[in-house]
Design a protein around this nucleic acid. Structure first.
Lengths: 99, 99
DNA sequence: AAAAGCACTTTGAATTACAAAGTAAATGAG
DNA sequence: CTCATTTACTTTGTAATTCAAAGTGCTTTT
């Protein structure tokens, strides 16, 4: 049997980052507050994971305005989408017990 | 959209524990050395994750002998199997983007 | 104008992960 | 038989990670 955990992406070991990615895959653009409410995490905690995902090039951040109020939205990048689907594929293969 | 990461099991946030479980789901009984080689981890590292899984009641340990040599095998428990499949189900739902 | 809210950043503490070193028993080489 | 090596761990120490709480700057509400 080959090593089942090769192909698993370390970035997605974390539930919150996993959650962010899954939300962003089905929703084109999501802002900070919506993410925070969907995932039920503290803002500081969410922010650090978002930075992490951005540093990895998996999401892109768009700092815009609604009137004078900042409205920052997050979206997956091509690379992020690939990384995530690759991770899921690796998971599926792992579960199927590739020998 | 409901929180997509509820239902995700913290124990399975870790790749090595995930790997152990997936191996034990498709292989009835696996010994320490085989796990170590399959997962390509150091023995100390593997041992701590196995202890963790055992403490959570997800695997059972059988310390036996082959002749005079110890042969410790690991197997999933009913509870471990359920926890793992529940986790996978939660993952699948998350990916599908349940709203 | 003061208080509160938003979207973060920074800080600090607790937990976790991991490698390396240590241990005890068994096997193998000379 | 003796010494070195292997196996299956345990213990130890450090590095990394996670997270909440506090802080910041701007806006909005009262």
């Amino acid at each position: 049997m080959k090593n089942p955990i090769t192909g698993l992406n370390k970035v997605f070991d974390n539930r919150i980052r996993l959650g962010v990615m899954s939300i962003l895959l089905v929703n084109e653009e999501v802002n900070f507050n919506d993410l925070k409410q969907m995932l039920e995490v503290t803002d500081g905690n969410l922010a650090t994971h978002l930075v992490n995902l951005e540093e990895n090039g998996y999401i892109k951040v768009h700092k815009g305005f609604i009137g004078k109020k900042t409205n920052t939205t997050y979206a997956v990048t091509k690379s992020g989408e690939k990384a995530f689907t690759d991770h899921i594929t690796a998971l599926e293969n792992m579960i199927k017990g590739i020998k």
